[in-house]
Amino acid sequence: MQEYVRGQIASGAYANLSEVVRAGLRLLMEKDGARQFYALKADLERAVADVEAGHFEPFDAYAFEPEAFERQG
Rank of each mutant, 00 (worst) to 15 (best):
residue 1 M to C: 02
residue 2 Q to W: 15
residue 3 E to M: 13
residue 3 E to T: 10
residue 3 E to Q: 15
residue 4 Y to S: 02
residue 5 V to C: 04
residue 6 R to C: 00
residue 6 R to K: 15
residue 6 R to W: 12
residue 7 G to K: 15
residue 7 G to E: 15
residue 7 G to V: 05
residue 8 Q to K: 14
residue 9 I to G: 01
residue 9 I to Q: 03
residue 9 I to C: 02
residue 10 A to Y: 07
residue 10 A to H: 08
residue 10 A to W: 07
residue 11 S to L: 12
residue 11 S to E: 12
residue 12 G to N: 05
residue 13 A to W: 12
residue 13 A to N: 07
residue 14 Y to P: 00
residue 14 Y to E: 01
residue 15 A to H: 06
residue 16 N to H: 08
residue 16 N to W: 09
residue 16 N to V: 02
residue 17 L to P: 00
residue 19 E to N: 05
residue 19 E to P: 00
residue 20 V to R: 11
residue 20 V to Q: 09
residue 20 V to I: 05
residue 21 V to M: 13
residue 22 R to D: 11
residue 24 G to F: 09
residue 25 L to Q: 13
residue 25 L to S: 05
residue 26 R to N: 06
residue 26 R to K: 11
residue 27 L to P: 00
residue 27 L to T: 03
residue 27 L to R: 11
residue 28 L to V: 03
residue 29 M to E: 14
residue 31 K to N: 10
residue 31 K to T: 07
residue 31 K to H: 12
residue 32 D to H: 11
residue 32 D to I: 04
residue 33 G to M: 10
residue 33 G to Y: 07
residue 34 A to K: 15
residue 34 A to N: 11
residue 34 A to S: 09
residue 34 A to E: 14
residue 35 R to F: 11
residue 35 R to N: 08
residue 36 Q to K: 15
residue 37 F to H: 13
residue 37 F to V: 03
residue 37 F to T: 03
residue 37 F to D: 02
residue 38 Y to D: 02
residue 39 A to Q: 15
residue 40 L to I: 06
residue 40 L to G: 05
residue 41 K to G: 00
residue 41 K to T: 02
residue 42 A to E: 06
residue 42 A to T: 05
residue 43 D to V: 03
residue 45 E to K: 14
residue 46 R to V: 01
residue 47 A to D: 08
residue 48 V to E: 12
residue 48 V to P: 00
residue 48 V to Q: 12
residue 49 A to N: 05
residue 49 A to E: 08
residue 49 A to L: 08
residue 50 D to H: 12
residue 51 V to C: 01
residue 52 E to R: 13
residue 52 E to Y: 06
residue 54 G to P: 01
residue 54 G to E: 06
residue 54 G to H: 06
residue 55 H to V: 07
residue 55 H to W: 10
residue 55 H to C: 01
residue 56 F to L: 03
residue 56 F to A: 02
residue 56 F to Y: 15
residue 56 F to C: 00
residue 57 E to M: 09
residue 57 E to D: 11
residue 57 E to N: 10
residue 57 E to Q: 13
residue 59 F to P: 00
residue 59 F to Y: 14
residue 59 F to W: 14
residue 59 F to A: 04
residue 60 D to I: 11
residue 60 D to K: 10
residue 60 D to F: 09
residue 62 Y to H: 11
residue 63 A to P: 01
residue 64 F to W: 13
residue 64 F to K: 08
residue 66 P to H: 10
residue 66 P to N: 09
residue 66 P to C: 07
residue 66 P to L: 10
residue 66 P to F: 11
residue 68 A to K: 15
residue 69 F to G: 00
residue 69 F to N: 01
residue 69 F to S: 02
residue 69 F to V: 01
residue 70 E to H: 02
residue 70 E to Q: 07
residue 70 E to A: 06
residue 70 E to D: 03
residue 70 E to M: 07
residue 71 R to N: 09
residue 72 Q to L: 12
residue 72 Q to V: 09
residue 73 G to D: 11
residue 73 G to A: 15
